[in-house]
């Protein structure tokens, strides 16, 4: 875990806990939760300009929980998280986004979706041509545009 993180150790722990509430691990789909150490490391590594709003959301979360989320029992953690989500706003949306955007590019998660864990370039994708006879009824229409 990085030592120059924009988040304090308590905030990092709360981030881990709420990420696991947002996306828990699933045996059914064979995927980790968003509290997985590798996913958490990626979130912290790439937090960048989102750090301020994430910090704000975690502050609000701790305020609603009455202290660090990590020390609460699971039911109270979940209640605090759901209250935060219901509050909405830019900070909460940013918190959710940084979790989702790192989770859904993790190799294990991407593979579980039936996708290849790679960037689009340089391999690209194959796009089927389709049936152009579908255009026949449109081709048969008279001109639609107006002549001034």
């Amino acid at each position: 875990m990085t030592t120059n993180s924009p988040l304090s150790p308590t905030e990092r722990e709360d981030l881990r806990v709420i990420a696991g509430i947002i996306i828990p691990a699933s045996a059914e789909f064979d995927v980790p939760g968003a509290d997985d150490p590798a996913i958490q490391a990626e979130i912290l590594r790439t937090l960048g300009r989102d750090a301020g709003l994430v910090h704000e959301a975690l502050d609000e979360l701790a305020r609603r929980a009455g202290g660090p989320l990590a020390v609460l029992d699971p039911a109270r953690r979940e209640a605090a998280a759901m209250k935060l989500r219901a509050r909405g706003g830019a900070a909460v949306a940013t918190l959710a986004r940084v979790v989702l955007q790192c989770y859904y590019r993790d190799d294990r998660v991407v593979r579980s979706l039936g996708l290849e864990p790679r960037p689009p370039y340089p391999q690209g994708h194959v796009l089927e041509d389709g049936d152009w006879s579908l255009l026949d009824p449109v081709r048969a229409r008279p001109p639609m545009w107006r002549l001034p």
């Binding site: 790439t46 960048g48 300009r49 989102d50 986004r97 955007q101 790192c102 859904y104 590019r105 864990p117 790679r118 960037p119 689009p120 370039y121 340089p122």
Partner: peptide, 15 residues
Amino acid sequence: TYPSTGRDWEARFYC
């Protein structure tokens, strides 16, 4: 350096 060259290709749309 365009986003589609990296694994964070979608995330860069937000920054």
